[in-house]
Amino acid sequence: MTTLLQIKTSVFSDHGHSTQLANEFVAQWQKHHPDGRVVVRDLGSEPLPHLSAERVQAFFTPPEQRTPAQQAHADASQELIDELKAADVVVIGLPLYNFGVPSTLKAYFDHLARNGITFRYTANGPEGLIADRKVYVFAARGGFYKDTPADSQTPFVKAFLNFIGLKSLEFVYAEGLNVSEDAKRTALQAASQQIEQLAA
């Protein structure tokens, strides 16, 4: 059975434009994969805890030396990693908040980044340990930032996903959503057309 993991990051959950675009893709994907399974992780409604010294120490402590509390932290991280590994396709809804990714997505990434588990350092540089699979990122922005120095979001997401082994990335942008109704309508229509092509 093919599994799609959908990661929602908007603080508005299903009311956010990034989530709506991602939902549109998932609906199209399900038409082409009627036996497929969709797993949803909504970081907006169920945010993960941000990193703390206690959590980092739990990750660094050898399993046989962990306290029960440290093991619980490590297990929570491992659950997210296993969920990602089990997915054949990953879909991320990505709003732009103050020139960056939602802090909830950063927290999610921080729980995925585990030396020796999702990546490792070698004499030839870092190596991602997550097997590559298709990742679709639906980026919604109030203004126009794509391919400008103000878009720190795209390089960061690419760099992190590549770092853990995910290199087959497809970005779909809907920009200018807060500029005018015409700009919003045009952007969402263009994104929908791209979604139809990608999901076919």
Rank of each mutant, 00 (worst) to 15 (best):
M1W: 05
L5V: 09
L5W: 11
I7K: 12
F12M: 14
S13C: 08
D14W: 09
G16E: 02
L21D: 09
L21R: 13
F25R: 00
F25G: 01
V26K: 13
R41D: 07
G44K: 09
S45Q: 15
E46M: 11
S52P: 05
V56A: 07
A58T: 02
P62L: 12
P62F: 11
E64H: 12
R66L: 10
A72W: 06
A72Q: 09
H73N: 07
H73R: 08
S77L: 11
E79D: 09
E83N: 07
V89F: 14
L94R: 07
L96A: 06
V101T: 13
P102V: 05
F109R: 11
H111G: 08
A113F: 09
A113D: 10
N115I: 11
I117Y: 01
R120N: 07
I130S: 04
I130Q: 06
I130T: 03
A131S: 04
R133Y: 00
K134T: 09
V135G: 01
A139P: 00
R141Q: 10
G142S: 10
G143N: 12
K146G: 04
P149I: 13
P149Y: 15
S152N: 09
P155F: 05
V157A: 08
F160D: 00
F163W: 06
E170G: 04
V172E: 01
G176N: 06
L177P: 02
V179Q: 11
D182M: 08
D182V: 10
A183Y: 08
L188F: 06
A191M: 08
Q194K: 14
